[in-house]
C-alpha cells in the first residue's frame, strides 16, 4: 500500500469540502474511510492510491441507527451489515434485508463493513482487480472480460464493462424500493436506489451516479403494506463466503390469491443491481402458479445474452427466481 495522509475532520461538511476536486483516477485525491473493507483492498492491490483518507466514522452527522418511522425504515450509512443482520426489527419486518446482509461475506467483514460502503464497493471482476490490466473501467480501452474469463460476469449487456455489482444488500434494497440520502456541498438529496446505481458509461466509469463530493448519509425503505413478504436467494461457488454468482430478491404481496404487488431484483447479472420490471409485469395481478413463475423467470431474463462462459447463469437465475416466487406464495417448488 502506498503512503497517504489520514485526516479526522470535525464535521461532515469539512469532510465533504476535502472531497472537492477529488479525482477518481488511480492516484491522488481524497477518499472517505468508514469500514474500509473495500477501500483498503483497492489500495492494497494498487488500484487506487489516494493522497488522503478521511475518517468519517466518528462524525456526529453520520450514524448507524436503524429507525422505523412514518417515512419508513431509515438506516444510517454507518450501520454495519452485522447490525442489519442482527437488528430485531429488520429481522421481523424486513427479513429479506437481514438475510441478504447475513449472506454477504463473513462475520468479520459484516462487523466491519458499513451499508454505505457496501453500496459503493467496486466490482470484484478479476480483470478490474488486477493492477496489471488496464481495463475499460479503469480508464482503458477494452473490457478484457468480454472475450476472456467471463464465467462470473454479466448477463445483461448494458455497459462497455461486463463486471457485476457485488453487493447482496443492494439487491434486497432494490426490491424494497429503497432510497439513498446523499449529502454534498449544497445540501442533501434523496434518490431512488434504481437511479443511484447505473451501469458505467463513458464519462462515468463507475457503478453509481453519486457525485465525487457526495456522501451517503442514510438509506430509507419507504413504508409498505404489512402483508408484503420478501426473500433473498443467493447462489455461490462454495457454501459460504463468496460473492453471488446470481442472486434474487423478491418482495410480494398476495391479495385474495392474486399477486397484488411484486418487486423483483437480480444480483450477479449486470454492472448494477438489476430491476426485473418485465417479470413484475408478468406477475402483477396474476394468480400464482408454477407456470406463471416460469413465465416470469423467462421475462426477467428478457434481453439477457450469455457471454462465452456465463451461460449457466441464465438457468440459474431463472431457477432462483421461480423458487423465490414459489416460496413467497406457498407454492410447491417443482
Amino acid at each position: 500500500m502506498r503512503a497517504f495522509a489520514y485526516a479526522s475532520p470535525r464535521s461532515l461538511d469539512e469532510a465533504i469540502a476535502l472531497l472537492d476536486g477529488a479525482g477518481d483516477g488511480h492516484a491522488g485525491g481524497t477518499r472517505l474511510l468508514a469500514g474500509g473493507t473495500d477501500l483498503l483492498t483497492l489500495m492494497q492491490a494498487d488500484l487506487i492510491a489516494p493522497e488522503r483518507l478521511v475518517d468519517i466514522k466518528r462524525l456526529a452527522e453520520l450514524d448507524d441507527r436503524i429507525e422505523d418511522g412514518a417515512e419508513g425504515l431509515t438506516i444510517g450509512a454507518l450501520a454495519t451489515l452485522a447490525e442489519l443482520e442482527e437488528d430485531p426489527f429488520v429481522q421481523s419486518r424486513y427479513p429479506i434485508l437481514a438475510e441478504a446482509a447475513g449472506l454477504a461475506a463473513t462475520p468479520q467483514l459484516r462487523n466491519m463493513a458499513t451499508l454505505g460502503g457496501n453500496l459503493l464497493q467496486r466490482p470484484r471482476c478479476w480483470y478490474f482487480r488486477d493492477s496489471r490490466v488496464h481495463c475499460w473501467l479503469k480508464g482503458g480501452d477494452l473490457c478484457y472480460a468480454r472475450g476472456g474469463e467471463n464465467q462470473h460476469h454479466a448477463l445483461f449487456d448494458v455497459s462497455p464493462c461486463v463486471a457485476v455489482h457485488p453487493s447482496d444488500p443492494a439487491v434486497a434494497l432494490l426490491a424494497l424500493d429503497a432510497r439513498v440520502r446523499l449529502r454534498g456541498p449544497s445540501g442533501e438529496r434523496e434518490i431512488s436506489l434504481g437511479s443511484f446505481f447505473a451501469p458505467p458509461e463513458d464519462g462515468r466509469r463507475k457503478e453509481t451516479t453519486q457525485a465525487d463530493n457526495e456522501v451517503i448519509v442514510a438509506v430509507r425503505i419507504p413504508p409498505r403494506h404489512a402483508d408484503a413478504r420478501g426473500v433473498y436467494l443467493k447462489a455461490m461457488e462454495r457454501k459460504a463466503w463468496a460473492f453471488a454468482l446470481v442472486s434474487v430478491a423478491a418482495v410480494l404481496r398476495l391479495e385474495a390469491g392474486r399477486i397484488a404487488e411484486v418487486s423483483v431484483a437480480l444480483g450477479g447479472v449486470a454492472p448494477a443491481p438489476w430491476h426485473a420490471r418485465d417479470a413484475e409485469q408478468v406477475l402483477v395481478g396474476a394468480e400464482s402458479s408454477a407456470d406463471l413463475f416460469a413465465r416470469a423467470a423467462d421475462a426477467a431474463l428478457t434481453g439477457a445474452g450469455a457471454l462465452a462462459k456465463n451461460g449457466y447463469k441464465l438457468p440459474l437465475a431463472k431457477a432462483l427466481l421461480r423458487r423465490a416466487l414459489a416460496d413467497l406464495t406457498g407454492q410447491p417448488v417443482d
Binding site: 474511510l33 483492498t41 483518507l53 468479520q108 467483514l109
Partner: peptide, 27 residues
C-alpha cells in the same frame, strides 16, 4: 492474505471479530 480473504488475522475490536489486515492502526 492481507485482503480480508482468509481470517488468519482475526482479532476482537470493541467486542466484535474483525480482520486486522483491513484496519488501519491509526484508525
Amino acid at each position: 492474505c492481507a485482503m480480508g480473504d482468509c481470517g488468519a488475522c482475526t482479532v476482537i475490536v470493541d467486542g466484535r471479530a474483525m480482520y486486522s489486515c483491513l484496519l488501519l492502526a491509526v484508525d
